[in-house]
């Protein structure tokens, strides 16, 4: 795998990523410690209070984060790429449309959003023709609709389009 990555310029180094993640983990641990202390983190007469375990879990998280941070800071091998520019671009090509898709669910409902998403993906990344992508996307969503909404009676988010069909 190393060989494969070498010709791809690094978007971010492994070491930077290690440090950032360790810092986030530390912050997470600190938040846990803070709220547990508020709840009471003592060992009372009848056993631990609500915050007892989370308090030490938080502390241990922070400790682990500090050690990982320190190790990464002094690690000479950390120069290698966490992700190459080309790789990152590929990942974002999937991830950004997915985020848009999830945001769209809230606006136009799941079925329409996912029809758009699948068709878009097939045309954009898969280089399929319209004539192939749209029927596939519609068919997938029609089967999802039948499966969840009609047979299993699981209500999924719906928007104005379903409402227009009287399905809302």
């Amino acid at each position: 795998m190393e060989e494969h990555h070498r010709h791809d310029r690094a978007a971010v180094s492994n070491r930077t990523m290690e440090l950032v993640v360790a810092a986030i983990v530390f912050a997470f641990g600190a938040v846990v410690v803070y709220d547990s202390a508020r709840l009471g983190a003592e060992w009372a007469d009848d056993g631990p209070q609500a915050g007892y375990f989370p308090f030490y879990i938080g502390l241990l998280t922070c400790l682990a984060a500090v050690i990982v941070f320190a190790k990464a800071a002094f690690d000479a091998r950390g120069r290698k790429a966490f992700v190459g520019v080309g790789q990152l671009a590929m990942v974002l090509k999937l991830f950004v449309p997915t985020v848009v898709f999830v945001a769209l669910i809230q606006v136009v409902g799941l079925y329409f959003a996912s029809t758009l998403f699948i068709a878009f993906f097939m045309i954009w990344l898969g280089k399929y023709a319209w004539i192939k992508a749209v029927p596939v996307a519609v068919a997938v969503n029609l089967s999802l609709f039948l499966l969840f909404e009609v047979w299993f009676k699981v209500p999924l988010p719906k928007g104005p389009i379903e409402a227009a069909f009287g399905l809302h």
């Binding site: 999937l94 997915t98 985020v99 898709f101 999830v102 669910i105 809230q106 799941l110 996912s114 998403f117 699948i118 993906f121 097939m122 990344l125 898969g126 280089k127 399929y128 596939v136 997938v140 999802l144 969840f148 699981v154 209500p155 999924l156 988010p157």
Partner: peptide, 30 residues
Amino acid sequence: FSIIAPVILVVCAIGAYTVHTSMFDVWLML
């Protein structure tokens, strides 16, 4: 891949949504 990947993502989103019928969980999944 360009067909199955978005379908999997849609199914994952549905899976996350149905646990508590909440969009918050779909964001959480991401």
